[in-house]
Design a protein around this nucleic acid. Sequence first.
DNA 1: TTCGTCAAAACGTTCA
DNA 2: TGAACGTTTTGACGAA
Length: 286
Amino acid sequence: MDMAHQNDHLCDTGLVLGLGYGRRSTTSYTTTTTATTTTATTTRSSSHRMSPAPATRLTLSLSDDALGLKMDANNDGKTTRVSSPHSTLSSFSTAYPPSVKKEKDMVSEEAEVERVLSSRTSDEEDGGGARKKLRLTKDQSALLEERFKEHSTLNPKQKQALAKQLNLRPRQVEVWFQNRRARTKLKQTEVDFELLKRCCETLTEENRRLQKELQELKALKFATPLYMQLPAATLTMCPSCERIAGASESTKGLAGAGTVAGVGSSPFVIAPKPHFFNPFTHPAAC
DNA sequence: TTCGTCAAAACGTTCA
DNA sequence: TGAACGTTTTGACGAA
């Protein structure tokens, strides 16, 4: 995912919507807060899980034919799931992230074989009633991830081919892509939420600052005789040059003086921040 | 197809 | 050290 692009996009949104955002938009995101927390850890865990691992080849594959026979034998609506754990025992490698599973590294191959065989045995002993949940191997997951990066959806042909390549059923591939899309979207939503939250905080802070300045100016207005008596509409803040300009000639002298406080003859002291620019008298000031 | 949900498996933490 | 328990990940399903 292109986070930089995403970031830019959202920043643009923040600026465009800037002063127009309201409570509604912020509250609408509150429901995702819990999910956000979850994903923070999700990312951490999955990252080390996905880390490169030494691959140890296993060849315990069940052929498609064998699976087909088993499904035929059961011949009910749920048979496909019954056989699914076995399909995982395909010709894919066993791999563990080296940074996490140190002990398991020692016995990776044997452990995987044993795990796979024992689960299979228990399934068979259960007569298929209590199914073990399928876990894709690292290689299977890696290949699926690779394909997902290329295309987040699959057409029937692609699905069929990938399923064959992975020694999985097409339905499993389909479900994997469905889940992957959903979880990618969720993760993106959480990222968006965080960025918008930050934008919101920035704008709130800016709003607070502007309100404070407004209060100061209002207070000043009462104490100021002439040059600050202009209608508010005639005062426009110049964001770039930060100069002061009034609508009348009486204020012109202030335009080049920087802050009002810098004007020696002025009896007034204004906070250094607010400077105003009149676009009518200084059209090219910026 | 998405969305919400369930549940198995993996993983992490605590404690005797 | 390992059992017990809590949390996270992820394969799978049904509803819309």
